[in-house]
Design a protein around this nucleic acid. Sequence first.
DNA 1: CTTGACTCCGTACCTGAGTACGGAACTTAT
DNA 2: ATAAGTTCCGTACTCAGGTACGGAGTCAAG
Lengths: 137, 137
Amino acid sequence: MQTYTISGLARAAGVNVETIRFYQRRGLLPEPDKPLGGIRRYSQADVARVLFIKSAQRIGFTLDEIAQLLQLDAGTHCAEARAIAERKLEDVRVRLADLQRIEAALTQLVDRCAARRDTVSCPLIAALQPASASPPR
Amino acid sequence: MQTYTISGLARAAGVNVETIRFYQRRGLLPEPDKPLGGIRRYSQADVARVLFIKSAQRIGFTLDEIAQLLQLDAGTHCAEARAIAERKLEDVRVRLADLQRIEAALTQLVDRCAARRDTVSCPLIAALQPASASPPR
DNA sequence: CTTGACTCCGTACCTGAGTACGGAACTTAT
DNA sequence: ATAAGTTCCGTACTCAGGTACGGAGTCAAG
């Protein structure tokens, strides 16, 4: 089994050592117990965990939300796990839809831009309108 | 044409008045010129713009990135627009992939959880591993 | 023509997510 | 056994994205 020091873990996950320590304080990452006044060692699993945190952040989850997701991974009891998962899933689907609309709009923009050599504009804002907005009061 | 006061705009977009003013300072939202020492009026388009900003934020864009996306919508000249759009598109596709993997993992978790009445765990972390991590040095 | 609600503007404050710093302890190579 | 490089830990600072506040001006209803 491969072990990392804290700086090896940070390097492997592409983050700062301080970030690792910060995640430990936040409870996102376990602090392995250290061998009597010694130095902690980390595993592949910790690397995966940090990479997960970073990916989840990129798609807009906060650290608190990520903590919930991580609990799911840990195998909570069924009922709670399912409840959390369902809430997150709704959330994820909203984001997915937004992201897909942005993707479509950007793709269209790039295509149109490749075809015609002039000024283009693209309904990027319109792409994200879910429904009609209500009139002012 | 419908017009909003600043608080009507804020209400319609589901944000705080202060947030509108903050976006104006950041250049994300135009400040309509006010009729001689009077009060500014906003349009549907401004509502759409704020909603766009909020959606884009939810999927993990920073305000600086959103400012770039908004420039695309404004119809920049072709070459630049295309360049920006292509960079964003790559970005969007990475996020989309992450999000889809999370969605799949969560769906699986919920399904498994509905089927069996006990403790489940779900490869949520594994779901976001793009490739194998490198060994420690 | 005043009262209450809203706008405008500047400045100050707050929260989330790190980043930096500094001293003491530990580890490794020389 | 000592110097260089890490680790550990606490505390302080930073930056993004808002939020709150307070005084002066404006506007609409009674």
